[in-house]
Amino acid sequence: MVTSGDSSQPFNWTVDEYGSTFLREMRDHKKLVGIKCPKCGKVYVPPRPVCGQCYVGMNEIVPVSDEGEIYVFTIVHFGFVDPNTGVQRPVPHGYAFIKLDGADTCLTHFLDSVDPVKVKVGARVKAVFEPKRTGSMMDIKHFKVL
């Protein structure tokens, strides 16, 4: 169910089997997983059924770390309303593509810091999980810059 301010919209989306595994592992065990291509060996996070580069099916779920490094980042200073929630995103906030240890693709997420000294390409980060998790990407509150 999508909520926007006080109202909700009747949207539901199906994720594939491997995506479900990812969300379940994160919700129930605070663990992150990827999927490995049998041909090129690339580990995709979030997991999905096909390696587009090789055009082959994938089925090997592999664990990835909840720690990794900032691949690219920005510190957002302009305010805008989050179209998912109807709530203004806080400014400034840190935003990054994070390459988790063991993964070859990045997860997009928020950072806990806007400190220009700490927030850099290559900086180490660790996922901070919400205490109450619902099976959404926001079960990760943000990534803490170490």
Binding site: T74, H109, M137
Partner: peptide, 22 residues
Amino acid sequence: HPVWERPNLGGAVAGLAIEASK
């Protein structure tokens, strides 16, 4: 993507700023 990306995507400017940072 509504499940994987929308909850925390950075928007128009952030999507380009990250490339500049790299």
